[in-house]
């Protein structure tokens, strides 16, 4: 992705977000954003845990559908993440 040079950004600016190309969120939205990112991180941790449980089931030789239930839950998280990405992309398009 090519970034357009901005001649005013040579020097560090003590103000946060100045020159980084980011627009700071509104004060009320900062907490919502951080909470959303935290929930995402928690879901990732949960997926990692699901993977370890699946590994344990596999090593124990469980032939029932336990691993597939775990894979289904993990897949739901992926689908949710994909939907969030799509929603963000749509919002960005609407903004422009």
């Amino acid at each position: 992705m090519r970034r357009e040079p901005r001649s005013v950004d040579y020097l560090p600016d003590p103000r946060p977000d100045v020159g980084t190309g980011r627009t700071p969120p509104a004060p009320g939205r900062q907490a919502i954003l951080l909470a959303s990112l935290s929930v995402g991180a928690l879901l990732l941790a949960m997926q990692l845990w699901l993977l370890t449980v699946a590994l344990e089931l596999y090593l124990n030789g469980n032939d029932d559908n336990g691993i597939w239930v775990l894979a289904g839950l993990s897949g739901l998280v992926v689908v949710g993440g994909g939907l969030v990405l799509r929603m963000l992309a749509r919002r960005a398009r609407l903004r422009w």
Binding site: G40, L51, Y58, G75, V78, L85
Partner: peptide, 26 residues
């Protein structure tokens, strides 16, 4: 934040694929 979310979704996909592979191997 957008890059972070994209990376997180990719990681999530990798974890999902790992779980599915374990199911197939089983």
């Amino acid at each position: 934040r957008r890059e972070f979310v994209r990376f997180a979704v990719l990681t999530s996909g990798a974890l999902f694929v790992g779980t599915v592979v374990l199911g197939i191997l089983g």
